[in-house]
Amino acid sequence: MASLKEWWHRLGSPRTFYAIAQRAGPWFTGLGVAAIVVALTWGLAFAPPDYQQGNSFRIMYLHVPTAILAQSVYMMLGAAGLVLLVWRMKLADMVIVAAAPFGMSMTALALVTGAIWGKPTWGAWWVWDARTTSMLVQLFLYFGLIALRQAIPREETAGRACAILAVVGTVNIPIIKYSVDWWLTLHQPSTFTLTAAPSMPPEMYLPLLVSVLGFYALFAGLVFARTSNVILDRERSTAWVRALVREQTS
């Protein structure tokens, strides 16, 4: 147990994390970009068209991964928030700062691609279906988190406030999703589901799987890269960052 605890503490040290991130980050980013390029090309050019929706269903290879990431990233923010509050690990706050904008951009992208996909499929840019509505609320959760972060001037106060909000938000997400699902069944029983995964043939869902994995890898790589930047910024006056600066610019 002692070694596990030691490992946890060492991981929590920004300098150690920076070293790990510098090594691992580019690999994850590269792998993610490669997988996404392969998956999207596969989905665009080689997957068979949907018998109902024709070719517009190809937006799925972009829409579904971003929607999944939008939720996963927020869950991770909640987990990081818990780590910050329980163990006071500063690194967790840096990860939140690094990951939140990416999560927000994924949520926005999921909404935009959903709207573009909705036009040829439902005949309307915006339909208040359960998933769209949950995703919209999710976007506002990201807005609130990032706005709170920027509003509080003191770094440490801002970090802990955001951690609490992320945890509260994460607890709320299932309740929001459940209530939105229910709201929909009350108002209009939805008969049309966009993607019924089991009915999809492998040549349609395999590219989707690769795309989802690619987005996760990209997320990991970007969290490494962006957290490194936050570490440099916050530790700019420490000896090791100064040494690094001299080494990089000489």
Binding site: V137, A147, L148, L165, G169, N172, I176, S179
Partner: peptide
């Protein structure tokens, strides 16, 4: 911050 949490 609060209004999204009020949705349910």
């Amino acid at each position: 911050i609060v209004l999204p949490l009020y949705v349910p």
